[in-house]
Design a binder for these strands. Sequence first.
DNA 1: GGGTGCCTCGAGGAC
DNA 2: CGAGGCACCC
Length: 802
Amino acid sequence: MHDDILAGLNPAQREAVTTVKGPVLVLAGPGSGKTRVLAHRVAYLLRAAGAHPRAVMAVTFTNKASQEMRERINRLLGEAVPTSTGWKGLTIGTFHAICARILRQEAASAHLNENYVIFDDGEQATAVKQALRDLNLDDKLYRPEAMRGAISKAKNELIKPADFETNTYWAEVARRVYVRYEEILTANSALDFDDLLCRTVYLLREAPDVLRRYQERYEYALVDEFQDTNIAQYEMVRLLGDKYRNVFAVGDEDQSVYSWRGADYRNVQRFREDFPGAKVILLEQNYRSTQTILDTANAIIARNTHRTPKTLRTDRGRGLEIVVHEAYDESDEATFVVSTIQRLISRGDARLGDCAVMYRTNAQSRALEDAFVARGMPYRLVGGTRFYQRKEIKDALAYLRVVHNPADSLGLTRILNVPPRNIGEKTVSALASWSTALDLPMTAALALTAGDLASPFLPAGAAARFEKPPQHPFAAGAQRSLIAFYRMLSGWYAAKNGLTVAELLDKITEQSGYATWLRDGTEEGEDRWGNLQELHTVAAHYDDFPPELRLTAFLEEVALVSDQDELVEEKDRATLLTLHTAKGLEFPVVFIVGLEENILPHSRSLEDPDQMEEERRLMYVGVTRAKDRVYLVRAFRRMIWGRTEINEPSRFLRDVSQAIKSGTANTGRRLDDDDRPSRAPVASSMMRDLPGRSPARATSAPPPNAPAPLRSGGALANAARPPVAGQRPATGSPAAPARTANGDAPRTLQFKAGDRVSHGLFGEGIVLKVEPALDDEEVTVAFPGKGTKTLLASFAKLRKVG
DNA sequence: GGGTGCCTCGAGGAC
DNA sequence: CGAGGCACCC
């Protein structure tokens, strides 16, 4: 009866799925089907091992991974596994989400307000700055960011302020900031991300009955990405698994890329010590990539010293060669990417949704986005300037949060005068210091200003302290404004349980004047309003929740969601994402851009061998995301912080190139062999940058000099050679004629300047310029009111009109 | 009290 | 180039 669950698994995977009792450590290479194993194991536990769903906890690192696991289990079991609240008690979620729920449920034991709010990075920074101000410390001398880092690190290592090492003066100051910071969070009934983890551990350590309850409930624990657990996460798993010891940990030391947030891959070793007799299962069979891709990845990772060498095998054959391309600058790099994608599509080699572009830092996405927009090619950006980071979204959420948890003074400060309602900075700080003096939240001080001793904003027992409202420090005008705001806020608070989140949001944005203020008639205002409507859509998902839970659940989820793009799942779009975000995903076509020293590897890693090893792992993660095609791209020069920088080619390119020369990775089919027989017989597809054969690019900067002559070895040799300042390397497209070289009939478009054309999205326009590009034509069109776009003729489906 | 504009400094990655 | 801080002006 379990054949369906075990069907198609190889022996190692099957063993991992069916070893139900006792600790198991699975060391899983990339593409070895670990997500599959996790999902099948959960299904197996429920269907074959008789486990109750409530007894199973599966922990992932990202929401995306949780979602995927839910979907897979759903498919295996043929039943719906909705939302993070779980399916019949099954617990699947990120560490943070699971901890948030435990802390809310056990709020009393954890000494927390059950309506606590979760502070994001920005709010964390605000609280740190506040702490520095409170302690009269100069934030030039004690950088808030460094302080925040020290506090975060301590929390991840389960170090409370009392245990904080103070062997330097700076550390002594940091400890004091840590203490004050914690006081601020407590006063706001707030937790930061790190608190979710460490408070859960403290709860389990300090409340034996709670520990026992959870230990008994979670007979089976599964942990994904185990190499990325930090000390707090590890300790949580250890404590919860200590009774039944059926802990199933999956990891790959070569994919450990989160040391910066406290991840410690030595947890894999600790696991073996804390769970003696753990069965170790190796998954080395790769089902994703071609052998060429695996060999290339191995050439990169093999230089790391702190690792166990392993061999990745695939049955997929050698596949296509890796393509290395050198672009002139970041915009040329982006043009190469979109042009190449377009070519793959036009040949039927890939769909847009198959393609992913990966980069080291979010800032690199901008040039790529520009190129995608310019070609009218849809893409989705994962992470980056996130939806939930937008001002209007944060404002709206702050309103909801304060209604949810009136102790959230930080949230209140954000919205008191947004939109402007004559509550100026002076009034706000007077309110803040008055409430501090009263030892009450700011909303409670607001209630007192209004003379309302019966206000629900006054904490239990606080009203009894006053016979009549104490004298407030505000002038008449300020008092009037504050009272008006207080009345609004009280109204929302009273209404919150009777309304859905979406209705509450409407009521707030309307009554507060926020909607009117936002929609100021500008295009930007409408954009922002549109974002608010999107938040409204998200909120509407919670309509069916029990009234007392929906606001809580909504706020918790939005605090822990990292990329909004999950909300609007789009079909056929290219994916732009950081290498970190790419972990756990796979794509037929992968571009890794910015392969330059100081970028990848990142400048902060150059001096530190451990950090450099992490950069290698990051590169390794990127390459191993690819199923079929890998493009490694670098730019000769690049704008960083508004300045032009020239970086040497990444050392990783050299490693790849050496692997290819030594023959370990170069026996793949040339990318173009099959479908471009008439191509000039260049030695390899690596030799892309033959001078004189690249058509001029409309989008790249004009060449300051003639292209540097290239020796044989082509782009790759060139890529691994330091560029000479001021010398422009050959750039642009591969040596390709303007028309398809594979014998396709040339497209019938043949546009010329002055033609009237029509585009699906941009409407009618006038052709300004036509240039050959790859297999196609690059047509620059002026669309009245929409601007000038450079489009690839076939892809853009331009029609001639008139 | 609030808004605007200039200046400085700063971006690694994410729940 | 961007955000945030600060000074100056209304």
